[in-house]
Design a protein around this nucleic acid. Structure first.
Length: 473
RNA sequence: GGCGGCAUAGCCAAGUGGCCCAAGGCGACGGAUUGCAAAUCCGUUAUUCCUCGGUUCAAAUCCGAGUGCCGCCUCCA
């Protein structure tokens, strides 16, 4: 079955085919490093990671590029606001470079803790200013951009397809009147490619003047082209990036290269918190440390955030993390059961027992993932497998296939515990001591040791065939 | 004011014309099991998919109107 993705540009599901067979060029819009990433950001990056993982499972070589915006850019194209990295620097009374460096480190740590695979390149905007200037020069030369004093603007009227991605039209943008009119712009919707401002701290000299800095959108156009070439297969981001960011990128890149910029556009839906928008004023902008402080592991967070389809709204509450934790335990059991059966422990007499259930789960899993990354359906196949195996039993040979399937699922999802957990010597001694106490029917001692073990994070379960333990998250 | 999305059980969440009296999860309830506890196992938990109208032999799925929520249009994943 072919992999289908929902393309935001055509607004329909399309079979995914890269330009070059076997190779996928993917650009993911990354963070602006002026603050700690929150769970909403993480959802979007997790979506990009899941996409990358699934493409790799399908056998593609994925050339993934995720940028880091470490250059301040104006809060809006009309120049009315201020640079947010510099604003944060002022609040913290620190150097803006130090701010962006610090939050870049935190971002990388967060994303690694969540199990995101490392992209091939993480280009920084600050290191690509020459490429941006080259593109700006090219746009001026081709008549798509114009210089006014030390500023350069993109002339939207020269690019008829402007608005195709977002559904906005230049005429409506004008009528909307929410764009502040700048006298020097030829059209209110024209956006900045380069700005001059001596007061800006992060700035570069160019032929437009000694104190300039790039517009927001140009960085992605320049970095994508440098690291992936003129035509991308996939470009992703959060839904808020559709307009203006991606609309402007298309205008810049396509005007510059004369080729379509990205073959498929994918956008993830915003994460809601407590049923509404997350905002600083409501105090519900949670980051990874908040999640940890509430006692949830990053694996539980990852599971909670991929449980909903990336294009649907997902409501973040502490309750969904608790649900996620309970549900994950079931999947951990499934993994443990399959491992045990593969070793011959508690395996069904018939080697083939459970084989059909494994095959069916795999089919359902792949069908889900191939349908525009329907992770909820893929996850359901794992739970169904668990139920089916309890009913049919699992033979040794079928278990080997089960293990291969679980490894396949794990490659795509990154939330399963495939490796056997081990207990340290001290824990083994405690378990033995409790076993002795139980044979003596010394329940008081046995329960005391069980509490001790529980305090160390291991849950015990007495079964007819012996004691089973599980590490608690 | 313009553009777009969403609305499925107590909660989370798939399904987008017949296989749906609707997957899966969480929770709850009943039973089994157990030294106890936890866990586990078995069973139950939407004749119905926001409301109203329409199209169709057939609709959660298509169309229209309404209601509610969310996002974008100004930085934001």
């Amino acid at each position: 079955m072919a992999f289908q993705v929902f393309d935001s540009l055509t607004k329909e599901k399309r079979i995914f085919e890269p330009l070059e067979p076997g190779v996928v060029r993917m650009y993911n819009c990354g963070p602006t490093v002026y603050g700690r990433v929150h769970v909403g950001n993480l959802r979007t990056f997790l979506f990009a990671d899941t996409l990358r993982r699934w493409l790799e499972v399908l056998g593609y070589e994925v050339r993934q590029v995720m940028n880091i915006t470490d250059v301040g850019h104006l809060l809006d194209d009309a120049d009315a606001g201020e640079d947010k990295i510099e604003a944060q620097a002022r609040r913290e009374r620190r150097d803006p470079w130090e701010i962006s460096r610090g939050f870049t480190e935190l971002f990388l740590a967060d994303v690694r803790a969540l199990g995101l695979r490392e992209p091939r390149v993480r280009p920084k905007a600050s290191e690509h200013v020459p490429e941006m200037l080259a593109m700006i020069e090219g746009l001026i030369a081709k008549g798509f951009a114009y210089q006014v004093g030390g500023d350069v603007y993109y002339e939207v009227a020269k690019f008829p397809r402007y608005g195709r991605l977002s559904g906005n039209t230049v005429a409506e943008l004008e009528a909307g009147a929410r764009i502040e009119v700048r006298a020097e712009k030829r059209h209110p919707a024209d956006f900045a490619l380069w700005k001059s401002d001596p007061g800006h701290i992060m700035k570069w000299p160019s032929r437009f003047g000694p104190d300039g800095f790039p517009g927001w959108h140009i960085e992605c156009s320049a970095m994508a082209q440098k690291h992936l070439g003129d035509v991308l297969d996939l470009h992703t981001g959060g839904e808020d990036n559709v307009f203006p960011h991606h609309e402007c990128e298309i205008a810049q890149s396509e005007a510059f290269t004369g080729k379509p910029f990205a073959r498929y556009w994918m956008h993830s839906k915003f994460l809601q918190v407590d049923g509404g928008k997350m905002s600083k004023s409501l105090g519900n902008v949670w980051n990874l440390d908040d999640v940890r402080a509430r006692g949830f592991s990053t694996r539980v967070l990852r599971f909670a955030l991929i449980r909903g389809h990336y294009r649907g709204p997902l409501n973040f509450t502490w309750g969904i993390l608790e649900e996620a934790r309970s549900a994950l335990e079931k999947l951990d059991e499934l993994c443990a059961d399959v491992r045990a059966a593969a070793r011959g422990e508690r395996a069904a007499a018939a080697d083939q027992a459970g084989q059909e259930a494994v095959a069916l789960a795999r089919e359902r899993f792949d069908a889900g993932m191939n349908d525009d990354l329907n992770v909820p359906q893929a996850l359901a196949s794992l739970f169904e497998l668990r139920g089916a195996l309890r009913a049919t039993g699992l033979g040794r040979e079928a278990a080997a296939e089960g293990l291969r399937f679980l490894a396949h699922a794990q490659a795509a999802l990154g939330v399963l515990l495939l490796e056997e957990a081990t207990l340290d010597v001290r824990m083994q001694a405690l378990l033995a001591a409790r076993g002795d106490a139980r044979t003596r029917k010394d329940w008081a001692a046995s329960d005391r040791i069980r509490d001790e073990i529980a305090a160390l994070g291991v849950v015990l379960q007495d079964t007819p065939t012996g004691v089973v333990w599980r590490k608690k998250e």
